[in-house]
Design a protein around this nucleic acid. Structure first.
Lengths: 205, 205
DNA sequence: GTCTATAACCGGATAGAC
DNA sequence: GTCTATCCGGTTATAGAC
């Protein structure tokens, strides 16, 4: 078979994702990745030559997975309601299983903006569809006039922020109580959908 | 005078804030702080003994400044409208001048959650006032029923997220165009205020 | 208090045996 | 492909002269 990936290589990438996503590039030790993968440190260099190369692999992997899941949602939706509901639900569900993810992407993107932005731009076709959908729906007369881009950022911010700021929200608002925080997250998607609907739709009650 | 702080010590802290906030703990080199402060590297150790100690000083400084500015706003407001308007405006203005700040706090808090959370909790009295204000206003009959805490997180997320995600928004949505992005930020506070108002107030039009 | 020199350590990377 | 041993550069931290 072509494209066959050795068991070891696969183990390395998996382990590297775990460690890099949690600790960031600078905070990650090659030894820790090796331990996580239960292999010898020098194998990391045998397969990926350098920490930087391994990191690039990890970042591209993680990022494209996120983009893929978002793209699917956008393509499957034909009204704003639908888009809003399925976007928020799938995105928050994704983050429930991978809470470190946004912090990782956002932190690393500040480290080497140029490289990252190149990568991001190579995945941007579905943006057009999104804008089109939003402006076409903007002609409906039961919708308040807001800048569609501001609304996209609103929804993203409301969805992602609780996970980025989890330690602060947990500690500061819920006084460290894990259960109330989890319940808050459980209700989050539903809340955002209702909140945004009552903001943009006239007579949504 | 008691409490007199030497000029050098002050210069070090200022420089350390700049570098730590931009590069994070792991990404920061003591040499870079020394350069930024135009002093000799060994003076950093003379005044603060270790990188870790210096960092703690910096984090406490930065964090308490943020808390102070938020507290002032909360204390000065007596209705939700007022609170919303002055909170969003002052917070976004603060972030315009210090865009790296949220990323720094949120990234470092994940590095050593226990230490950080202790620090955070030592500043939490104004939270009570905030909750009281929100639930008391909840009795007004021109307001839709939402969980006040969800709304606090909504507002925080909408305000902070554009700055955390600036490189992505700039690159992905505005195709790298600095001007459109700046304009987007300029409109941001106004938008959030309108958006939240039309979400929570019945007949806000 | 400030500087130069250097110690002590750590972590990424490589050589070479198996 | 995998392992052990080791190198080498960089970074924190300290010693000691001024």
């Amino acid at each position: 078979m072509v494209n066959e990936i050795s068991n070891t290589e696969e183990k390395i990438v998996k382990a590297a994702i775990v460690v890099f996503v949690k600790k960031g590039y600078d905070g990650t030790r090659m030894q820790e990745i090796a331990d996580e993968a239960s292999i010898n440190k020098s194998l990391l260099h045998y397969y990926f030559r350098s920490k930087e190369k391994l990191f690039e692999k990890v970042f591209a992997n993680v990022f494209s997975e996120v983009i893929k899941s978002i793209t699917q949602v956008i393509e499957a939706s034909s009204t704003i309601e639908e888009l809003l509901e399925s976007f928020v639900s799938t995105y928050i569900n994704l983050l429930k299983t991978k809470p470190y993810l946004p912090n990782f992407v956002l932190h690393e993107i500040n480290r080497k903006p140029s490289v990252m932005v190149d990568m991001i731009n190579s995945k941007g076709e579905n943006k057009i569809r999104l804008i089109k959908l939003l402006s076409q729906e903007g002609e409906r007369n039961d919708i308040r006039e807001f800048d569609p881009i501001q609304i996209i950022v609103d929804v993203l911010g409301m969805s992602i922020f609780p996970f980025i700021a989890a330690p602060i929200i947990k500690g500061f608002i819920f006084e460290g109580d894990e259960d109330t925080f989890n319940n808050f997250i459980k209700e989050r998607a539903k809340h955002i959908i209702n909140f945004v609907k009552s903001a943009i739709f006239i007579n949504s009650d």
